Computed example of a mutant assay.
Amino acid sequence: MSLKDTARTVAVLSTLHAAIGDQLKTAKRELETGLKAAKAETGTQKIAVSLDEGQDVGTVSLVQPKATAAVTDPDAFTAWVIENYGSEISRRFVTEVKPGFQKKILEALTAAGTAEWADPETGVIHEVPGVTMQGRAAYTRLTVPDTGKAAIAEAWRAGRLADVALPELTAGGES
């Protein structure tokens, strides 16, 4: 392939990629909105993805990550560590909790699902100030195994994806 042919290929693929990318973002937002609504209405969190003839090529799932512990009030958290675990404090121009200790506490709180921490050495249960459990946004996960990808590629080559709304390319690349 000549350099000119390669440049043409890159220009065509880049234009198509941009147009499809914009449409993909919109479709993913619609899918996530639809899955959230389905979960609220019927409890559905996972659907099969099928081609026109009904062959399943993958699945789409609504994933709801567990809440994680986060330091939301660094001063309160640092004061608690100073009072209870002074050796875990680094003193410079600024007083701060050692990153390793903070990570250990946050991981334990995340695993427990609460801002209460049980000291493994003393058994004392601490209500850890300055830390709250924060929910994370649900998102969709698309799973298309290699067999599904092959089936989609074959359907594309055979012209059986006419019902999929592909972007219209206009002058100037606007879609």
Results as ranks from 00 to 15, higher is better:
55 Q>P: 03
92 R>I: 10
33 T>Q: 10
54 G>F: 05
160 R>K: 15
163 D>M: 06
48 A>D: 13
49 V>N: 07
24 L>V: 06
169 L>A: 12
105 I>R: 00
38 A>V: 04
46 K>M: 13
45 Q>T: 15
33 T>H: 08
6 T>Q: 07
52 D>N: 08
63 V>S: 08
156 W>A: 10
139 Y>E: 09
6 T>D: 08
128 V>M: 01
44 T>M: 07
120 P>A: 02
57 V>N: 02
46 K>S: 15
86 G>R: 13
163 D>K: 14
80 W>Q: 02
80 W>F: 07
26 T>H: 12
175 S>E: 11
97 V>N: 00
32 E>S: 03
95 T>L: 13
65 P>T: 10
45 Q>E: 13
96 E>L: 11
146 D>A: 14
22 D>A: 01
62 L>C: 09
15 T>C: 08
129 P>F: 04
171 A>K: 14
140 T>D: 02
86 G>Y: 09
99 P>L: 08
112 A>T: 01
38 A>E: 15
129 P>Y: 02
116 E>T: 08
89 I>N: 11
148 G>K: 05
66 K>T: 07
136 R>I: 02
110 T>G: 01
107 E>S: 15
143 T>R: 11
84 N>Y: 05
57 V>Y: 04
8 R>M: 15
113 G>V: 02
43 G>L: 05
16 L>W: 15
56 D>C: 06
126 H>L: 05
150 A>K: 11
47 I>P: 00
167 P>K: 07
51 L>G: 12
42 T>I: 09
103 K>I: 05
51 L>C: 11
54 G>M: 06
139 Y>P: 11
114 T>C: 02
113 G>W: 01
146 D>G: 14
98 K>H: 01
109 L>D: 00
79 A>D: 10
166 L>Y: 14
46 K>N: 12
146 D>Y: 12
140 T>N: 01
60 V>N: 01
108 A>M: 07
34 G>D: 05
55 Q>G: 07
13 L>R: 15
73 D>R: 11
14 S>V: 00
15 T>S: 12
55 Q>R: 15
169 L>N: 08
27 A>T: 11
61 S>V: 12
117 W>K: 00
36 K>G: 14
66 K>V: 06
9 T>Q: 12
163 D>A: 15
165 A>C: 14
84 N>E: 12
119 D>S: 02
116 E>Y: 11
64 Q>T: 14
104 K>M: 01
166 L>H: 13
125 I>V: 07
128 V>F: 01
49 V>L: 15
46 K>Q: 10
126 H>A: 03
102 Q>L: 04
18 A>V: 09
86 G>S: 15
104 K>A: 00
21 G>A: 12
97 V>A: 05
